[in-house]
Design a protein around this nucleic acid. Sequence first.
DNA 1: GCGCTTCACGCAAGAATCTTTCGTGATTTT
DNA 2: AAAATCACGAAAGATTCTTGCGTGAAGCGC
Lengths: 158, 158
Amino acid sequence: MPLKADLDAIDWKILRELQHDGRMTNVELSGRVGISAPPCLRRVRRLEETGIIRGYRALLNAPALGLDVVAFCLIGLHHQADAELKTFAERTRGWPIVRDAWMVSGESDFLLHCVASDLGAFQTFVIEELASAPDVDTVRTALTIRRVKDEGLVAFPA
Amino acid sequence: MPLKADLDAIDWKILRELQHDGRMTNVELSGRVGISAPPCLRRVRRLEETGIIRGYRALLNAPALGLDVVAFCLIGLHHQADAELKTFAERTRGWPIVRDAWMVSGESDFLLHCVASDLGAFQTFVIEELASAPDVDTVRTALTIRRVKDEGLVAFPA
DNA sequence: GCGCTTCACGCAAGAATCTTTCGTGATTTT
DNA sequence: AAAATCACGAAAGATTCTTGCGTGAAGCGC
C-alpha cells in the first residue's frame, strides 16, 4: 500500500465514478472513462490490490429501517495515556450503536458517530454505557436534525 | 419511500451483505442469503426502488491519495433562524473540503466532516472560508488522529 | 541512432453472470 | 372451498466478465 500512488487522469476518473456508483458494471465504467473494458478492469483490480479502493458499500436509509436517531458524541477521557486510549477504542467496537469512531486531538479525545432506533435507546446508551465507562470524563452529544451534505470521502474537480 | 418497510429475514440478510460488500455479484449474494438468483435480484431491485438502498459507493483510501488531514468542525451560528440555517447549509455544498455535513442540536448548529491535502490547506479553509463566513459565530475543530471503527450505517445482529 | 525491453491498450473468444419468462406451490381472501 | 395473490425456482437468451494474445508507443542501453 504505497503512501503516494502514481495515478493518471483515467485512474482518477475511475475513482470518481466508483465513488459515485460503486455497483456500476465494468463495461459502463470503461465507457465513461474512455477506454475499453479489459484495461479498465485491470486498473480497478490494481486500485483494489494497492488499497486505494478499500471496499464497496451499499448506503442504507436509516429512517426507513426504523433507525430515527443519528447523533455524534465527543468523548473526553480522564487521562490520555496510550493504554487508556487503546482500551476505549477497543470498547467502541463492542457497541453496535457506534458506527464510526475517530480518535481526535483538540478538546476531546474521541468522536463517535451513533445510530439508534429512538431517543430512549440512545439516551440509555449514553447514560448506562458511555458515561459509566471507567475512563470517560466528559460526554458531549449533538443530535442530528438532518443531513445537509453527503458526498464521498474524496473531492474530485468537476 | 415508506417510513417503515416490511422486510423479512432474507431482506435483512441482503442489506447486511451489501453493506459489507456492495459489489458482490447477484449469484454470490443469492447463495449467501439462501435463495436462488432471480428472486434475490427482485428483492434488491425493490430495496433500491423503495429507497432503502440509497446507492453504492467505493470506499477510498484518503492518505494514499494525498489527503492527509481529516477533521471535524463544530459550527455555531449567530442566530438560528431558518434562513440562516438554510444559507449556511447551502454554503457547505460549495466547499469541496467539506465531505459530509449535518445540522445538529446542542452546543453547535452544524457538524462538518472535512478532508484536506495537508494541515496548511485545512487551516486556510478554516480561517479564510469558515470563520469568515458571515453568519458563523464559533468554530471548534477536532483533527483526527486515526479511525478507530468504520462500519456501515446500520448495525446487524451477528 | 538502433534495437531491446517494458508497458498499456484493444480485439476476440470462452466462461460466468444477469435478467426475463414461465410454471408451481403456499398463503390469504372472498 | 374456490379464487386470487405472491414469491419461489428452473430454463434460456442476452449481457457481461475475464483471459490470452498481438500491436504500438515510450524508455533505456549500446
